[in-house]
Simulated scan of single mutants.
Amino acid sequence: MAEMFRNVLMGLGCLGLLWLGSCAMLGAGTAVAVSSASKEAGKWYEKEELKYHNEQDNKAAAYHEHSDYNADYYENYED
């Protein structure tokens, strides 16, 4: 009877270790998934930010005032 009781307690202890191991593996898997997702999100954000700044710079470079056209005309087309 004592042998059987000891085996039952040993089995419960092993189940506890299995439960603890599965929780650790689940936590490690979650950490890896979150890490890779954050890296992808960071790359996407950097790409979008660069695209936004390029668009702003292109708009600023394409904007000319009337005095810019006059200066260009008198610089390049004077007799």
Rank of each mutant, 00 (worst) to 15 (best):
residue 1 M to N: 10
residue 1 M to P: 08
residue 1 M to F: 09
residue 1 M to C: 10
residue 2 A to H: 06
residue 3 E to W: 07
residue 5 F to T: 12
residue 5 F to N: 11
residue 6 R to W: 03
residue 6 R to M: 10
residue 6 R to T: 01
residue 8 V to R: 00
residue 9 L to Y: 07
residue 11 G to W: 15
residue 11 G to Y: 15
residue 12 L to V: 04
residue 12 L to I: 06
residue 12 L to C: 07
residue 14 C to G: 13
residue 14 C to Y: 13
residue 15 L to G: 06
residue 15 L to Y: 09
residue 15 L to N: 06
residue 15 L to P: 00
residue 16 G to F: 04
residue 17 L to G: 04
residue 18 L to K: 04
residue 18 L to P: 01
residue 19 W to E: 06
residue 21 G to C: 05
residue 21 G to H: 03
residue 22 S to K: 10
residue 22 S to R: 10
residue 22 S to Y: 10
residue 23 C to K: 12
residue 23 C to S: 14
residue 23 C to R: 13
residue 24 A to F: 09
residue 25 M to W: 13
residue 25 M to P: 03
residue 26 L to K: 15
residue 26 L to N: 12
residue 26 L to D: 04
residue 27 G to I: 13
residue 27 G to A: 14
residue 27 G to W: 09
residue 27 G to V: 15
residue 28 A to T: 06
residue 29 G to V: 03
residue 29 G to M: 03
residue 29 G to E: 10
residue 30 T to E: 07
residue 31 A to R: 03
residue 32 V to D: 12
residue 34 V to H: 02
residue 34 V to M: 07
residue 35 S to I: 11
residue 36 S to T: 11
residue 37 A to L: 06
residue 37 A to N: 14
residue 38 S to F: 15
residue 38 S to K: 14
residue 39 K to P: 07
residue 40 E to G: 13
residue 41 A to L: 08
residue 42 G to Q: 06
residue 43 K to Q: 10
residue 43 K to T: 10
residue 44 W to E: 15
residue 44 W to L: 15
residue 44 W to C: 05
residue 45 Y to K: 13
residue 45 Y to N: 14
residue 45 Y to S: 14
residue 45 Y to A: 12
residue 47 K to M: 08
residue 47 K to I: 14
residue 47 K to E: 14
residue 48 E to A: 03
residue 49 E to N: 09
residue 49 E to G: 03
residue 49 E to Q: 15
residue 50 L to S: 11
residue 52 Y to V: 08
residue 52 Y to N: 04
residue 52 Y to F: 13
residue 52 Y to S: 04
residue 52 Y to T: 13
residue 53 H to Q: 15
residue 53 H to M: 11
residue 54 N to A: 14
residue 54 N to E: 08
residue 55 E to H: 07
residue 56 Q to D: 03
residue 57 D to R: 12
residue 58 N to G: 05
residue 59 K to T: 07
residue 59 K to E: 15
residue 61 A to I: 01
residue 61 A to N: 05
residue 61 A to T: 00
residue 62 A to H: 01
residue 62 A to N: 02
residue 62 A to M: 01
residue 62 A to G: 03
residue 63 Y to Q: 10
residue 63 Y to M: 07
residue 63 Y to P: 00
residue 64 H to A: 04
residue 64 H to T: 08
residue 64 H to K: 09
residue 65 E to L: 05
residue 66 H to R: 12
residue 66 H to Y: 05
residue 67 S to W: 12
residue 68 D to F: 02
residue 68 D to T: 02
residue 69 Y to V: 00
residue 69 Y to Q: 00
residue 69 Y to R: 05
residue 69 Y to G: 00
residue 71 A to M: 03
residue 71 A to P: 02
residue 72 D to S: 01
residue 72 D to P: 01
residue 72 D to G: 00
residue 73 Y to T: 01
residue 73 Y to R: 01
residue 73 Y to L: 02
residue 73 Y to Q: 00
residue 73 Y to I: 03
residue 74 Y to F: 08
residue 74 Y to Q: 03
residue 74 Y to N: 01
residue 75 E to Y: 09
residue 75 E to R: 08
residue 75 E to D: 12
residue 75 E to G: 05
residue 75 E to P: 13
residue 76 N to L: 02
residue 76 N to Y: 02
residue 77 Y to V: 02
residue 77 Y to L: 02
residue 78 E to F: 08
residue 78 E to L: 09
residue 78 E to H: 10
residue 78 E to P: 06
residue 79 D to C: 06
